[in-house]
Simulated assay, not measured.
Amino acid sequence: MRTILSAVLIALVALLVPASAVAYWADHELGDADRYTAVMSPLARNPAVQDVVVTQAGRALSGQIDAGPFQGGVDALLGEALRSFAGTPAYRTAWDAANRAAHTAFLDALTTGHGDALTIDLAPVIDEVKWELVADGVPFADRIPVTHLSVKVMEYDNLAALRKGFHMLQVAGIWLPVLTLVLAAAAIAVALHRRRAVMATGLGLAVGAVLLGIAVDVCRRLTLDDLPADIDRPAAGAVYDALTSFLRTTTWVVLAVGLAAALGAWLMGRLRRTP
């Protein structure tokens, strides 16, 4: 009975590893504005994301300027200025400000049920571009109004279900990882052969890590396949990869810890048998 109980606990540990990682990620990564902004910040240098920002901001800016017969030249100047601006520290600062605002809107959607997409307001970017253009003496740049321009990078259906699921993950964000560790310790404690139990628990952790990695990849494919045609898929893929970077790192860390524990227990057994 002790062996059976230990095996059941190890199986539970393997199943709880992905659930624990996702719960902790939802509570401490997605739910925290500073961590969210830090995760999204490197996307300011991503070419696919930059193309979306430049294209959308260019359309918004050109539509706000009536340059008459000089419209074509002004639009070309705006495009060049935006692409040049996308590589500056000022752009990265504006990008971080836009993502912090997007995080606030995202959490508001999950708590109030308003909205159906993850969007980024490019108003801070447009404001920075305007004053860069004015400083460079670009004609008509002072006429650019700073308006709110939301770029949709993720869209989600059935927001009510998503809101309930996110709330459950936040509640489980602390106790579920602790429960996983407690069950792993219990599986070793109740076993008749504890060295074998350590080895089996390590393999269980490794299996759980593999399940987590598979889940992240499958969800990526499903998310991108369900996107509307007007959303840039390379940019959305970059956003997904940034948001789930913690889960990918967790996959490799747990896999390494599990395999190291299993290997250590196996080597201890071999050493004890050596005369």
Rank of each mutant, 00 (worst) to 15 (best):
M1G: 06
T3F: 11
I4M: 03
I4Q: 05
V8I: 15
V8S: 10
V17G: 02
A19M: 12
S20N: 13
D27H: 09
D27N: 12
E29G: 00
Y36G: 02
A38F: 02
V39K: 04
V39Y: 04
P42C: 12
Q50K: 14
V52Q: 13
T55S: 15
Q56H: 13
Q56R: 14
A60Q: 12
G63K: 06
D66E: 10
V74H: 05
D75A: 15
D75L: 07
D75P: 01
L77A: 15
E80T: 12
S84C: 00
F85V: 03
F85E: 03
A86F: 00
A90D: 11
A94K: 03
W95K: 01
A97G: 03
A97L: 03
N99D: 05
G113P: 01
G113F: 10
G113Q: 05
A117Y: 10
L118H: 08
L118R: 01
L118D: 02
T119C: 03
T119G: 08
I120D: 00
L122P: 00
V125F: 06
D127R: 15
K130V: 07
V134K: 04
D136F: 02
A141L: 04
D142I: 08
R143K: 15
H148Y: 03
L149I: 14
S150E: 14
S150D: 09
V151A: 15
M154D: 11
A161V: 08
A161P: 04
R163E: 07
K164W: 06
G165H: 08
G165K: 10
G173V: 09
L176G: 11
L176K: 07
L176Y: 11
A185Y: 05
A186K: 00
R195A: 13
A197H: 03
V198E: 05
T201Q: 01
G202S: 09
A206R: 01
V207T: 14
G208M: 09
L212S: 09
G213V: 04
I214M: 14
D217M: 09
D217N: 13
C219Y: 10
R221T: 11
R221W: 08
L222V: 15
T223G: 00
L224R: 00
D225G: 09
D226E: 14
L227I: 08
L227F: 13
P228S: 15
A229V: 13
A235Q: 03
A236K: 03
A238H: 03
V239I: 13
A242V: 08
L243I: 12
T250D: 07
W252G: 06
V254M: 08
V254G: 04
V254R: 06
V254E: 06
V257P: 00
G258Q: 09
A260G: 01
A261T: 02
G264L: 15
G264Y: 14
G269T: 07
L271C: 02
R273I: 02
